[in-house]
Amino acid sequence: MNLAARAEATEKVVARFRNRPFDWSDRATCIHLARAQMRALGHRPPAIPDFRSALGARKALERTGYASLEALLDSMLPRISPLSAWVGDLMLVPGKEPFGEALAINAGGALLMYHAEADGVANVVDAMVHVRAAWRL
């Protein structure tokens, strides 16, 4: 998929989440955003178990056999250097507990992600310096 098609697919995903505030019980979390992005770029990730809280999300992750979102994504996607990420690739940044990490979509110099100061997915310019890991989609 060329970069223009990746950008168009990414914008469609973000449009679905842009005005949906983060909500554990409404399937509006970073893992739901990441899964939608994976599907938009041609991947077939497994379904996300239904959970309604941070604790439920933690237990669902543990049932997968992985201790972190990072380990889960490492099992599904090729890891890349964050500096070589293309528009639409997934990025891992520090997050709130219970995970201490969050997923975002690379927007070419900024990250599309849930942020405490936004009502939905936001374009966060200064977040790139905090990227811990990245995966090619």
Rank of each mutant, 00 (worst) to 15 (best):
H115K: 04
L92G: 05
R63F: 09
D50W: 09
V87K: 14
A28C: 12
A7I: 01
A104P: 07
L33P: 02
L112F: 10
R58C: 04
S25M: 03
T29R: 11
F17C: 05
H130G: 00
R6L: 01
E70V: 11
G108A: 11
R6F: 02
A9I: 00
M113R: 12
A47P: 05
R132M: 11
R79L: 08
G42K: 10
P46G: 15
P21T: 03
R63P: 01
N2L: 00
V13E: 02
G100V: 04
A134P: 09
C30S: 14
A71L: 14
T10W: 04
V87G: 10
R16T: 04
D89P: 04
V124T: 08
W86A: 15
A127P: 02
G88A: 13
W86N: 14
A134Y: 09
L55Y: 11
F99L: 13
F17H: 05
L72N: 10
A34W: 09
R18F: 01
T29V: 06
L90F: 08
R39G: 00
D23M: 02
F51E: 07
S81L: 13
E101C: 08
L111S: 08
A116L: 06
A104Y: 08
A5T: 08
N2K: 04
G108M: 08
A134S: 13
R132K: 15
Q37L: 06
G108D: 07
A28F: 03
A4Q: 11
A5Y: 00
V125R: 14
W135F: 06
P49R: 12
A110T: 01
L103K: 07
W86H: 14
L55T: 12
H43A: 15
R79F: 07
W86T: 04
V93T: 14
R39S: 05
